[in-house]
């Protein structure tokens, strides 16, 4: 079997440099397995060798995230391991965040990574999409069960073997939905599930619904005649030709377009890029989706202070919630910075 290279990441305590007084230790590394890496070394498949142990103080890593990350990235680049093992961090918050970040750096370099954490460690929530986190107890007392599971998973990852579901491998769900073929077709599975549910037997939903955010609307504006209003749409209205190439579905970007001096969106100058509805009526009159004409009228009548001179647009068709949230955060920050008091959101 081909030899595989493993790099271990530990904090100052497990790396045997010292306790809290040494938490400001910058990243360093040693050729020899140290602390838990010694135990791990014995548990890894025979073709896997720990080639380096990186050690960094938890305080240093979290307070100098950029510098620490750059140093770890440089080391991983040079070492080009087949897998990175970080921790286990149990319920140590700063250590968990550092292990998670190391996993993210490895992910960005295309290297798989494994850690071990207690489910409530903040590192789990922040970094779980980037690495496999074996579920551990909340203290180092669970080292004995954590290490074999981590070693087994790290060995599989190093050797490019398929990774099973969270319950099979012992890792905490990464929140990644992946496709696979079931044995029965969906309609038959639905009937099985319904009969189990009616008979009050155990059943497992194939999609556990998330808890949705409920955003409290901001307080109403008391004097609209002084307010700057912006238009933001998921209806895909863009300048003719779609200069930013916003996709018809699953948009990966949004655009900001000037309406300074524009009284009404004309079909000559604007169109929709949206692929989820019949575009005929939106293309005929883009104001139907982004009502610039109506807002200008209100502006002239003095009912609103002014219309913000740009509108923002993306396509809300199969666009992931994560992307939509990221666009909204950026757009909202810009609008707040530029003194906008209210936004009219139009969807289609």
């Amino acid at each position: 079997m081909e030899q595989k290279r493993v790099v271990v990441y530990l904090n100052q305590f497990f790396g045997q440099i010292g306790g809290e007084d040494k938490a400001d230790t910058p990243p360093q590394s040693t050729d020899k397995p140290v602390g838990p890496a010694v135990g791990l070394s014995a548990l890894l498949p025979k073709n896997c060798t720990i080639v380096r142990t990186i050690i960094c103080g938890d305080g240093y890593f979290n307070e100098n995230l950029e510098e620490a990350s750059a140093a770890v990235r440089q080391m991983l680049k040079e070492l080009s391991p087949d897998v990175v093992v970080a921790g286990p961090a149990f319920n140590a918050g700063r250590y968990g965040m550092a292990c998670g970040m190391v996993g993210k750096i490895a992910f960005e370099l295309g290297i798989p990574a494994v850690s071990g954490m207690y489910p409530e460690n903040p590192g789990v929530e922040t970094y779980r999409p980037y690495l496999y986190i074996i579920e551990t107890g909340n203290s180092a007392a669970s080292m004995r069960t954590a290490l074999p599971a981590m070693a087994k998973l790290a060995g599989k990852l190093a050797n490019g073997e398929p990774i099973g579901a969270p319950a099979e491998e012992g890792y905490l769900s990464r929140g990644i939905r992946r496709n696979l073929f079931a044995e029965k077709r969906g309609s038959d599975r639905a009937i099985d599930m319904l009969l189990q549910k009616i008979k009050r037997e155990d059943f497992t939903t194939e999609y556990p619904v998330p808890h949705f955010d409920r955003v409290e609307p901001a307080a109403a504006i008391t004097d609209l005649s002084q307010a700057t209003i912006a238009l933001v749409t998921s209806g895909g209205i863009v300048p003719k030709g779609n200069p930013d190439r916003i996709e018809a579905s699953s948009a990966s970007r949004y655009g900001r377009y000037s309406i300074d001096g524009i009284d009404s969106l004309t079909p000559e100058a604007f169109q929709t890029a949206h692929g989820g509805y019949d575009p005929v009526y939106a293309n005929e009159n883009p104001n139907r989706v982004v009502p610039v004409d109506a807002l200008r009228e209100l502006e002239r009548e003095g009912r609103i202070g002014k219309l913000f001179p740009y509108f923002y647009a993306t396509v809300g068709n199969g666009t992931s919630v994560a992307n939509a949230r990221a666009y909204a955060q950026e757009i909202a920050a810009e609008l707040v910075n530029e003194g906008v008091q209210a936004v009219i959101l139009t969807s289609t």
């Binding site: 992946r178 939903t205 619904v209 998330p210 699953s250 992931s320 919630v321 994560a322 992307n323």
Partner: peptide
């Protein structure tokens, strides 16, 4: 589901705790 290309996004645009039995 529309969970994003990487599978990490929310799959549905609406949800309820009563929707406890779903075939995907």
């Amino acid at each position: 589901e529309y969970a994003g290309r990487d599978g990490t996004s929310q799959s549905l645009a609406d949800a309820s705790p009563l929707a406890d039995a779903i075939v995907s």
